[in-house]
Amino acid sequence: MKLTLKVWRQKNSNSEGKLVAYDLDGISPDSSFLEMLDILNETLIERGEEPVAFDHDCREGICGMCSLVINGIPHGHERQTTVCQLHMRHFKDGQTVTIEPWRSKPLPVIKDLIVDRTALEKIQQAGGFVSISTGGVPDANATPIPKQVADVAMDAAACIGCGACVAACKNASAMLFMSAKVSQLNRLPQGKVEKDRRVLAMVKTHDELGFGNCTNFGECQAVCPKGITLDHIAKLNRDYAVASFKNIFGGVK
């Protein structure tokens, strides 16, 4: 396969970036998108140029490290797929492919296609945990959880925290990411105890970090590699209303 790549090159967070075009030939349709970038980097190194910096880790679609906006769509145009699981057979021979980093104020570009996702960690740290001593492995079914509840919590827990929702959102909101954490923990008995405190703290942190507001576009759900739905945002909205109401009357410590 022959491709023309337009790759975002940016030296560091303080410098201006720009799209640089590279022609690439002899790419196997069976190689993954990241393998294609590896080949690009090898040719760049051979030519004595700086390779393109991009995030990747497991290359199995479960770690949430890869973070490329391909032709305007985070993780590319294949549904529920991370970039590492996206294969070149989904592109046309001779196609021009534009590759950009996640773009939002709270997730600044560190270099080329790598962004600093500390802001997502900060949201998680604000309330995405359960404050109980875990101890040893509890007996199975010691805490009964209805199957339906466990299923929905598991769906939410599928979030790998890649930040594609932020990248896709027209408002650069991290609402889908945050709602996955809130929905997962607030539904289960272990996390329910802190549900009001959690949702208030996480929304507060989300807003302070400079993420945008959710206006119900649904772009986040469309690009989420793990298929997190707007359902979880509805759950967050519901829980936030209840928590704020309690908070106004002094019920949340």
């Binding site: 337009k6 305007g72 769509i73 950009e100 104020k105 650069a172 909101s173 649904g218 772009e219 469309a222």
Partner: peptide
């Protein structure tokens, strides 16, 4: 205003999947 500020740098190639 807040939503514009949350993305200071626009995508060079923008796409919309569902909205």
């Amino acid at each position: 205003k807040e939503n514009k500020a949350a993305r200071p740098e626009a995508y060079r190639k923008d796409a919309t999947v569902r909205a």
